[in-house]
């Protein structure tokens, strides 16, 4: 799924007006300029996490949880600039980690992985359920 496809899906699920959504999202602080410039690129899980987290902060005004509780994710600190986005989406139950060993012994967020359209739709729906 491309970033543009994800944003279209996001608008459909959330009811956001898709007209000029990139510009308005950037003005509101939940989209970045690279989302607009590279809108045709496949969207990675770390970028989904960033967009959804910033939407939660900027639009839904939901405060962050303590990142410490996400340290079970083995790859959390592989990305200095997106660690908090990933942590918040995991802790709020919006995005799941992959359990590479049984019993949660090796939880892997898979920062650079890509999700299917259905999984991304599920992420958005979970986000919208947060109160």
């Amino acid at each position: 799924m491309t970033t543009e496809g994800f944003i279209s899906l996001f608008c459909k699920e959330t009811g956001e007006d898709p007209v000029n959504i990139f510009e308005r999202g950037r003005q509101a602080g939940w989209l970045e300029v690279q989302d607009e410039v590279f809108r045709q690129d496949p969207i990675t899980r770390k970028n989904v996490a960033r967009i959804l987290h910033m939407y939660l902060l900027k639009v839904k005004n939901i405060q962050d949880l303590d990142i410490k509780d996400a340290e079970v994710l083995r790859d959390l600190y592989d990305c200095r600039v997106c660690a908090n986005h990933i942590a918040q989406m995991y802790l709020h139950g919006v995005m799941d980690a992959k359990d590479l060993m049984e019993g949660g012994r090796f939880l892997w967020f898979d920062l650079d992985g890509e999700d299917s359209d259905e999984v991304n739709k599920d992420h958005i729906r979970r986000l919208l359920s947060i109160r």
Binding site: G29, L57, K58, D64
Partner: peptide, 13 residues
């Protein structure tokens, strides 16, 4: 790593 944003101070230890 838990940086702030406008309106949220972030968290340190």
């Amino acid at each position: 790593f838990q940086v702030g944003s406008d309106g949220t101070p972030g968290k340190a230890s």
